[in-house]
Design a protein around this nucleic acid. Sequence first.
RNA 1: GCGGGGGUCGCCUAGCCUGGUAGGGCGUGGGAUUGCUAAUCCCAUGUCAGCAAUGACCCGUGGGUUCAAAUCCCAUCCCCCGCGCCA
Length: 420
Amino acid sequence: MIDPKIIKERPEIIRKMLSDRHVSFDLDLMLSLDSKRREMITKTDDLRKLKNNMGGDIAAKKKSGQNAESLITEMQKVSQELQKLESDQVKTEQEFDKLVMTLPNLIHESVPIGIDDSANVVIKSWGVVPKFDFVIKDHIDISRELGLVDLERAAKTAGARFYYLKNNLVRLNQALIHFALDFLTEKQYGLIQPPYMINRNSMEGAIIADDFENVIYKVQDEDLFLIGTSEHSIAAMHSDEILEGKDLPIRYAGVSPCFRKEAGAHGRDQKGIFRVHQFEKVEQYVFARPEESWSEHEKMLAIAEEFYQKLEIPYRVMLLSSGDLGKVSAKTYDIEAWMAGQNSYREIVSCSNCLDFQTRRLKIRFRDKTNEQTQYLHSLNSTLVATTRTLVAIIENFQTKDGHISVPKPLQKYLEANII
RNA sequence: GCGGGGGUCGCCUAGCCUGGUAGGGCGUGGGAUUGCUAAUCCCAUGUCAGCAAUGACCCGUGGGUUCAAAUCCCAUCCCCCGCGCCA
């Protein structure tokens, strides 16, 4: 949620953001609802004041043994009138909230303006794209031939975009998680294994309405939703809290399975384990002071880069354009890894600064001294590793002439093998 | 799942039986005072509306009763203790 002060006082900023994002949104309706609700607050407040005063008078009369009947009948009328006004006010408030909760975040000035991913900018590239002196295969063929994956049976039992990992691919998957946790522990991150299901209120804090539709699975008959990433759980973890300034920044390494509907991705990456409904992820999630969030953002990207450098996976860093930017994010870097089997760079990391957008929704504030005014924190999130996609990169880039996979150096100790 | 206890403005706590609109302590900040790094006293310390003066709201959450609800009634969530069941 954007600071209501900005919405009220600088609507032109909101208007520009909406056009830069190419999002249709009835800003004028929201502005008129906002002023209407402010008016109604004043009205009901006045009536409540009257009511409070009358209540005091009645109490005083009763105490001194006087008759308060006429005051009481008058008060009945006031109460009725207030009730009517209040229900109107609540209605207006709800309409406003509903709208404001779908309003996307502001955009940072460094973000390139553009219609979609074609306007994304390559920030840098790292590593050398591997050359092969044999005909290479994609991850599906390699892992199938090595007995590492069963997609057909997964389709039978669960549907498309599911998979059974088998044998050493299970170990490789776990090795990635293990390595990622060790790596972030070294960087002083606190480890978090969060709830894999959270309630609506918490989910609404982390995401925007249309994500419910397109990415989030709901549990039948329960107020529970499967998380699309540990970001969702961790964002809500400190909701309604006032944190102490001395503890900041708070850096969490979340590890969890991720569940995604992938609605609207029909036909794309249909085969294999690149785009799936379920995978494991180690995530960086940081709560920072507003003035520190941009430097934290760069740090998180650097940490993610270091991880892929250690794995020796070539990548490039993309700065997402306004049209490709997620609705809760003010600025996002993607890391795209080279995937030999697809002969292209594909997204494996998304690193975003959400400013106070999530923390306002979740009421996560901080202060240094207990008598100070509280401030909203900034929240940032970045993939460290989403296992399936990184597995694709490893399988395809590290394939050998005889159809095996050599294990990246940092993972060898976890796997107790250097070739699969 | 059953029985009992509990959830109060950052933290601790009073008030609930007997309805009249949240009091105290700690912490933190500011001020006053006394010849000194101490003590004492005063003020401030959540949310919303408002330029402000002010005012409204806030007792886990949602309903209800009432002129009036932290307080009474109903529902619901969470925590603690005991019993049961169980990976």
